[in-house]
Design a protein around this nucleic acid. Structure first.
Lengths: 375, 375
DNA sequence: CGGCGCTCCGGAATCGTTTGCAGGCTAGGA
DNA sequence: TCCTAGCCTGCAAACGATTCCGGAGCGCCG
């Protein structure tokens, strides 16, 4: 009784009757028809008399009939569901992609089953197993570090952002290598020679590519190899790594932080230690976020094409579901460098530990202006 | 052929055979048993001989049998799926709640079907319809502005964060009224008398409560009523509203921004106009985010208990699914004020338009220190 | 006028799983 | 020895929708 009271508030508009879900069988019985006829009428198939169709549609409308997607899925052997497996929805990085995925799938009549793994291979495995049990028709996956953890699936898979190393599946990534090189190129073009890199989990393909891209860029420019610190993508590691860098011997004049969280921690720590940015130390990040242009100073960063990555992943998966049989795609989407306030020539600012930023113009001027680079 | 090549990479661990999904029927045929016996053995029911059970389990293991969740859902009339409908996953506000929801549901063996509405009642309606069609067992919903848009559902619903005005459903909200009052109290205790409010969509219950809380607090303190500007939650509106306030007559000495995006826009605009914060203008926000303590100055804000809201919403829904029949709960969770660098006594700082923040200590000192308030 | 083709419709099988019911079997007590 | 209470197992009916097949009715052409 209470349950009825609790839930009927949401029924009033649509359901005249409180009880749940009218079925085709009930409509058929009411109209003295066969279930098959009702089904044909409701799905708009031919070979149904006009009068009969009208009657069925009217009855369906009257009772608020809605097809039972579970039964339909069982019989048609298509659930119109897609599974999406991401490490973390709090991370803007994945949230942005996922949002685009969701919209694309919805536009094409697919529902989205979301699973979060926290980069835990075990959770990833169970998530994939659950998705398979639910008979999803395809999966978009940000694979975790260990390649074997990618579970048992017998359906189209798109690996997004990270790759597990398999070449037989479609992959859509950011052009990490080139983007990192672009950031390094920017720092080098300002005159920096001692450039350090702070990066995340070395098991991730993203980290490896970013570090490799940075190293290659330095080598290509004839600069000394960078000091590279890797551990994870936490803000704490950004803080810790920055501390190590600036308190160590021969501190760098510029730091490339390979993710926004790392940049955040690094920036915070530098400011806590009284290191002027960009006066004494330049900082460039990979991965743009909302708050990079409200930080003081606003953070120079390579914006990653997250929406595009999501969009393309969705398109590829949808094309596979539509039956496309071309060989696997391996897409790489380029980002763009946004120069803001945390990078400048080494030792250029006279007001070393006390950057001016209250004028506002310096914050707004260069912000959001795309800049060419090594690309 | 290509499809096989594409997908079998994900089968290798679990499925010895490439073809999809062994069924109970096939196991039964192989062992010369009835399907019902196989089913009983697999679901661990009694009245199955030990030898038979062993054989069935072994065959299932060997073929990588997994129950078809769709068929099971149809027969058992339980999908073990929960629908979650939120306005926007890019908003940290909702992403945080959703993450907690997902984890809770997963821990209890439920999958999560996610829909995004963008605050569009039409999309909300279709999303709810789709969830109902998918036979989800419960829904967590951030209702959009118009109450009638909440669609036809005949199952437990929890309204999260916002409410549609119905009292028959469970609701879990932040204590907006009290939290807004706390922020106003903080500003007033610093000596501010001319306090303005920038808020979002007046249709949202959250906006109404925040504004009402602010107004009530001012009245209770004997202060003049605030100038209140409402429109939406975009950063652009924060910018625009701040411009109106400071260029208008009798500009306020303090501004309460009712969401983080609004605060972001407002802060940006104030700095662009050369208004010193907190020297000439104090700014307090409702809604904490990652970047509030890396802004310069770091933003004083009321942290909302998003994780708790998600957790409680999940618990309530799960208890309903377990059959709880108590009368509807209306939970309100309190936030806490985090005083950082954007609030001070009016005219207290001599270095008006050029706040010092590079020392770092001033940024770290008060940050993250919870402070009592009006509560 | 027979046959062919067409439309409209009902019966029944099917998707994979669960479950009520009944039959066969064994064991134990009367 | 017989009866009954149990355990194991198989048969068949569900769940709700789709779909194949076939039959009835009709019109049309040869």
């Amino acid at each position: 009784m209470l349950t009825t009271a609790l839930t009927c508030g949401y029924n009033e508009i649509f359901c005249g009757i409180v009880c749940g879900m009218v079925t085709q069988k009930q409509i058929a019985r009411e109209l003295g028809l066969a279930v098959s006829t009702v089904s044909r009428a409701l799905t708009g198939q031919p070979h149904v008399g006009e009068a009969t169709r009208k009657a069925v549609l009217a009855a369906a409308e009257r009772h608020g009939y809605r097809p039972n997607a579970v039964a339909r899925a069982l019989r048609r052997r298509e659930t119109r569901m897609i599974g999406v497996v991401v490490p973390d929805m709090l991370n803007h990085f994945y949230a942005a992609c996922t949002t685009v995925l969701q919209e694309s799938f919805e536009d094409h009549g697919y529902g989205m089953l979301l699973a979060v793994t926290g980069n835990d291979p075990q959770r990833e495995r169970t998530a994939l197993a659950r998705l398979r049990d639910a008979q999803v028709e395809g999966v978009v996956l940000v694979p975790s570090a260990t390649p074997r953890s990618t579970g048992p699936l017998d359906l189209p898979v798109v690996e997004m952002i990270r790759t597990s190393g398999r070449t037989q599946v479609d992959t859509v990534q950011c052009a990490e290598h080139e983007t990192a090189a672009e950031a390094i190129g920017h720092l080098a073009s300002l005159g920096h020679r001692r450039i350090a890199v702070i990066a995340g989990e070395p098991e991730f393909s993203t980290t490896r590519e970013r570090v490799a891209g940075a190293r290659a860029a330095l080598a290509g420019l004839g600069l000394p190899p960078a000091r590279v610190l890797t551990r994870d993508h936490t803000r704490a590691w950004g803080t810790e790594a920055m501390r190590q860098l600036v308190t160590g011997e021969e501190p760098p004049t510029a730091v490339f932080a390979a993710s926004s969280e790392l940049a955040l921690g690094a920036l915070h720590e530098a400011q806590r230690l009284g290191i002027g940015i960009p006066g004494r130390l330049s900082l460039a990040a990979l991965g743009n976020t909302d708050w990079f242009d409200v930080c003081r100073p606003p953070v120079t960063a390579c914006a990653q094409p997250l929406a595009e990555v999501g969009m393309i992943s969705a398109q590829i998966l949808l094309s596979r579901l539509a039956g496309a049989r071309r060989s696997p795609s391996h897409i790489r989407v380029s980002g763009r460098l946004v120069v803001r306030g945390t990078t400048s020539a080494p030792g250029a600012r006279r007001d070393g530990d006390r950057p001016r930023e209250a004028s506002g113009a310096s914050a707004d001027g260069p912000a959001n202006s795309p800049t060419g680079g090594l690309g």
